[in-house]
Design a binder for these strands. Sequence first.
DNA 1: GTCTATAGATAGATAGAC
DNA 2: GTCTATCTATCTATAGAC
Lengths: 201, 201
Amino acid sequence: MARKVGSVGSVTAEAILTEGCKLFARFGYAAVSMRQIAAAVGVQASAIYQHYPNKQEILVAILNAHMDALLKAWDDEVCDEDAAAALERFVRFHIRYHISRPDEVFLSYMELRSLEDQGFRIIERKRHTYESVAKTILRHGTEDGTFSVSDPHVAAMAILAMLTGVNTWYRSDGRLSQQKIEELYIGMVMGSVGLTAAPKE
Amino acid sequence: MARKVGSVGSVTAEAILTEGCKLFARFGYAAVSMRQIAAAVGVQASAIYQHYPNKQEILVAILNAHMDALLKAWDDEVCDEDAAAALERFVRFHIRYHISRPDEVFLSYMELRSLEDQGFRIIERKRHTYESVAKTILRHGTEDGTFSVSDPHVAAMAILAMLTGVNTWYRSDGRLSQQKIEELYIGMVMGSVGLTAAPKE
DNA sequence: GTCTATAGATAGATAGAC
DNA sequence: GTCTATCTATCTATAGAC
């Protein structure tokens, strides 16, 4: 058959990323075939190559889009405030953003190993950029005496791991609301950097 | 060729788990072929089937052995002590144990999705058993007033994620000694449960 | 217990029609 | 832009020799 009636390339290209992300997150990059992705999109496998040169580039495109969106979302959120408020803002932002995109988050943590040289370097760089957001907040707060942190780098990695870990147990129909979860984690994060009371509500 | 001179089945069976673990951790379960595992062990692919009925059972055996060893190691360590000391002991234990087995740890977090029904249930049960270790320490410490924790379940998951996250950045030739890392994390964990000073040194 | 050989399925990717 | 058809490679797993 020739082109489907009403088929639009950009729609298919986008659907490949969406469905690929779901499938890769669920079964793993290596375990998912081009035919599976194509079936989820509603085209034949060969049609995918019109939009991406190979399977690897689909993964790179998914992770790239995720990291760009994450960095952009934080840029839109950030404002001038004291260290404690900035940390609280960051905790809320990270939890909210990551909870709402479980597949992208899981992929970007689990499938780094499936990236080949160039793709890996690009994604890794963006990950470091995001990590440095947390690190900078902690360093400023430590320098101005707000936080008691011996090692801002380790503290940033510890806090990020703790926050991202929400995704391993969070269920939208679970016992706790997202709001409540944010409060619990803010309490723990503030405690971990030496603050006992929440800075401002 | 017939049996290799000096070949011993139990040695091969063990080597399949060791090499399989390394390969699965590095490339992912689905991406690793029986031929790759066999080559690492030094036999032909078909020899593997003398020891494990299929690829899936290799993964199950690796994860099972890891979880059993982890639970046993904690059982050997645990003793009667107050909540703060127990939490400190747990933090040190978890970091030390997980840092020394990066491949097993990575596998047991990343490849749960590659487990089929029965294997998944078995491993998941053991993981819950381990999580309940942390949860029980936090609950007791909260009940006797040592800790300020609003939700022991969430706190346990948060602390476990934070501690396990060490594996994502730790390098044995890095800037920080294992001892120093333990101290840093103990400080953060104690802070996160509302304790400011280290309980005992 | 391990080998060689191979069956049978499925993978990523391409060619050419429409 | 998508299709059908197909190439070539590789996979898991088994059969049977030693």
